[in-house]
Each structure stands twice: as C-alpha cells, then as structure tokens.
Amino acid sequence: MKIAILSLCLFITAPFIQEEHLTITHDGKKLMTVNRKEFQDEMLGKPFVNQEKTAQLIGQLEDKINREPVPAKIGQADEIIPGKPGSKVDVRTFTEELHRYLHATGPSSIHVPTLPAHPRVDSELLATIRTKQIGQYVTYFNKNNQERSHNIRLAAEALDSHVVFPGEVFSFNKVVGKRTVEKGYKKAPVIVKGEVSEGIGGGICQLSSTLFNSVDKAGVKIMERYSHSKRVPYVPEGRDATVSWYGPDFTFKNPYNQPILIRSKVYGGQMIVKVYSSDVINIEPNDVPDASKQLPEEMYQ
C-alpha cells in the first residue's frame, strides 16, 4: 500500500525553467535520474507540480527500496526465533527534498531517506500468546503419496506461527500464498467440479480443513468456508474447507480481545493444527467431531 503523498504547493514565483537532472541514490547506488521538466504542468496559466508524476516516482522508489519485516516465529525445537526489521521510504522527508530541488536551479542529488519497518509479531508477543491452548485438530493422510505429502508439509510451514490479531480476518489464501511450482509445490490429485484430476498444490485442502476444525473448536467466527464438490475422507462429512487460489478461500475472524497463534505441523501421516493465546483469554469453545484414523489407500485434495 502506497503511503499518502504530501501535497506540493503551486509554483507561482519559481516556474520550471531548468532541466538539470536530479540524481536519486540509495545505499551508495544510483537508482535513477529525473529532471524538473518531467514534473511540469500548467493550470490556468500558472505552473505547478504534477502530483500524479510525483506519486509515480515515489511508488517506483518504494518498489525498489521497501523491504518487508520478518516476523518472529517458533522453531522446530519450540524456540522463539526473533524477527528482523524491514525498511520503507521516508515519504515525508523525501518529498520535502524533492520540493526543494524543484524550486531551485541547477543539478542536484538526493539520497533516499528510509524509516525502519518493525514486524507486527515480535518475540515478546509470541512468548505471551503461546501459553494457553484453545484449539486442536488432527487429520491423517497416506504418507506414501509423496507429492501430496510434500504439498501438505510445504503449506503447513507457511501457516505455522501465524498470528491473528483481535478483530482481524484471517485468509488462508493470503497467508499461505499462491501454490506454484516456483515455490516448490508439486502436482497431486485434486477435486474439480466433482471430478478427480491432477493439479499443482494438491493436498493443501487437508490443511485448510484441519485448520477450520481447529479454529472452530476455539470459537472463532467463521466468515467464508466451502465444502468440496465430492466427499473427502479425512474429516467428517460437512467438516471440510476447500481452497483454491482463483476460487474459494477459507476465512475467519478473531472475536477475542487477545491475539491467537496458529501452529501447524506434520508428523509422519498426521496433520496437526493447534491454536494458542494468552492466559487471560476467555473463550467460548465449540464441540467438533474428531477425524477418522482409518485411511483409504489414496486420498484427494
């Protein structure tokens, strides 16, 4: 999301008469050059800064410079791994410096100023909200189906340690991300309009279904959930949650005044999703039927 751009005032006393370049740098590297004429526009016979061009310039710099922070997470040995700060363009300061260049004459240069971007989830928060388990669900799969098992494990790693803040809506597709070959997902059986076929990321609906039952136990507010067009064997009938990048999503809202933490792990042929929060949370749990431990030779989605 682009940061709001500061309005630049009309150039009544300092019209655009120079074309000398402005060199824009960051971390000792030249990013681009611009000149005053690129920002020139006129309204009612008076020159002014084209704010659309200014916004485009800052957007380009944000694409090049902004770096997302890395949230803290819980490691394999149950240890907390600290997060890492990111960075973002200091739009206010940069706009002021650009403003000075546009009012002046001659060439100039600007080193793009940045601000730290701190992760929403830090070590202290994780330590607080992993103390009380409020939901858990286990499903089972045929671990000999290597492609499907691989996809389930990859998606579970993307979901693990995710925190949903009070009042926030969780989206499975947004958190786990697009399932692509570039991310390591493999072809495995999927159900499309009641028919079984091969698709990239086949198997992850077992994770979304396991998550649904776990958070439903924890009493969250389910916002969006769809069942498969064909019965799936890993959860009781009507307890599944199908997902697709260009189709259905699974979403829920955290109704509590405390953040909730999602842990998702694969152990052999078991998919386990647990939900935690702080000791002070006051939940209203739901009754959810357990999944069957008996598996067919092959399972889909």
Rank of each mutant, 00 (worst) to 15 (best):
S7T: 12
S7N: 12
S7R: 08
S7G: 06
S7C: 02
L8E: 13
L8P: 01
L8I: 08
C9Q: 12
C9E: 15
C9I: 07
C9L: 12
L10K: 09
L10Y: 11
L10P: 00
L10H: 04
L10V: 14
L10Q: 10
F11P: 00
F11R: 15
F11W: 09
F11N: 06
I12P: 00
I12L: 09
I12C: 02
T13N: 13
T13D: 14
T13E: 13
T13V: 06
T13Y: 13
T13C: 03
A14S: 15
A14H: 15
A14D: 14
A14W: 14
P15Q: 04
P15M: 02
P15F: 03
P15V: 02
P15D: 01
P15R: 02
F16Y: 11
F16S: 01
F16N: 03
F16V: 10
F16E: 00
F16R: 03
F16K: 04
I17A: 10
Q18F: 12
Q18L: 04
Q18A: 14
Q18V: 08
Q18W: 09
E19K: 08
E19C: 07
E19F: 03
E19V: 05
E20Y: 02
E20H: 12
H21N: 15
H21L: 11
H21V: 13
L22G: 09
L22K: 04
L22M: 10
L22N: 07
T23P: 00
T23E: 05
T23R: 08
T23Y: 03
T23N: 08
T23H: 08
I24S: 06
I24D: 14
I24G: 10
I24P: 12
I24E: 07
I24H: 05
I24L: 09
I24Y: 03
I24C: 10
I24T: 06
T25P: 00
T25I: 01
T25Y: 03
T25N: 13
T25K: 12
H26G: 04
H26K: 13
H26D: 09
D27V: 02
D27I: 00
D27L: 09
D27P: 00
G28L: 11
G28A: 10
K29M: 01
K29C: 02
K29V: 03
K29D: 05
K29H: 06
K29R: 09
K29E: 12
K30C: 01
K30E: 14
K30R: 14
L31R: 07
L31H: 05
L31W: 04
L31A: 04
L31G: 02
M32C: 15
M32F: 01
M32G: 03
M32W: 00
T33K: 12
T33D: 15
T33S: 15
T33P: 10
T33N: 09
V34T: 14
V34F: 01
V34A: 13
N35W: 01
N35T: 05
N35C: 14
N35E: 08
R36N: 03
R36E: 03
K37R: 06
K37H: 11
K37E: 08
K37A: 12
K37I: 12
E38R: 05
E38Y: 05
E38G: 01
E38I: 14
E38P: 01
F39T: 02
F39N: 01
F39H: 03
F39D: 01
Q40R: 13
Q40P: 00
Q40I: 03
D41T: 15
D41Y: 07
D41P: 00
D41C: 08
D41M: 11
